[in-house]
Amino acid sequence: MNAFDYEAPQSVDEAISLLSAGNGNVGILAGGTDLIAQLKEGRKIDLMLDLKQIPEATALSFDEDSGLSIGAATSCSKIYGYDVVQSRYPALVDCTSLIGSIQIQNRGTVGGNFCNASPAADTPPAVIVLGSTCRIAGPNGMREVAAEDFFTGPGQSVLQSGEFLVSIQVPTPAANSGAFFLRFIPRNEMDIAVANAAASVVLDSEKTTIQEARVAIGAVAPTPLLVADAGAALVGKAVDDEDAIEAACAASRAAARPISDMRGTIEQRIHLSGVLTRRAIQGAIQRAKES
């Protein structure tokens, strides 16, 4: 590792000052499971900026009006261990509890998963279908970006030089709603998604008709994708409308534009986009019925 300075600012403002003084060559440290591995592989930085002393970046709180606030430096295990997440946001448990190992979950963060911007990242699909917002601090103050608009390419996001992700705001789930995330990997743990998917639905009070729906897929395009056509195919349809669910799966297959690599082929990933979309929708409907 090359030599660098280390700072652990106590506030967002202090972090912004350090970022602007850092000439763009700053490594932002949350859990370090990506950053430190990259530094060992030769990435060079002048300053390591540790977010874990900033209250907004480590907060994990829920408010009925504003929803769930996940500080960007909050570990996956803190998130899935939080009783509100377990009871109200099970799709966040789905994704945070299957990343890497327990050792990685105790350090790695959803904020880091977003900023690392791997196309195969496991937290974005669920965060996207829950209608979340990324809160970004920069020299000109705070700005908000919808989770589905955060990613611009492999390893690339909307973050500009001098900015950092402070927190992710997840709205309070609507009545009669449910969300679900899953991925396909050839083994049970410690792997990277061949493909993944999440869905959320809001049902009517009878829990027979879908009023709102969102579907997102990952590892099948340069960025995680919100598949608007898949959600639209479900709206107004009965929860057991097989044709509607198949239309949503077809929308996901159409949206996927994967590559072939050591984890899977283009054909397999397009097929999986449909299969995982179906299972995510069915899982979300089941949870909405049980809500």
Binding site: Y6, A8, L29, G32, T33, I36, A37, M48, D50, K52, S101, Q103, I104, N106, R107
Partner: peptide
């Protein structure tokens, strides 16, 4: 945690 992925200063 994996101590190879945590800095000493942390």
């Amino acid at each position: 945690i994996d101590s190879c992925l945590m800095m000493g200063v942390e």
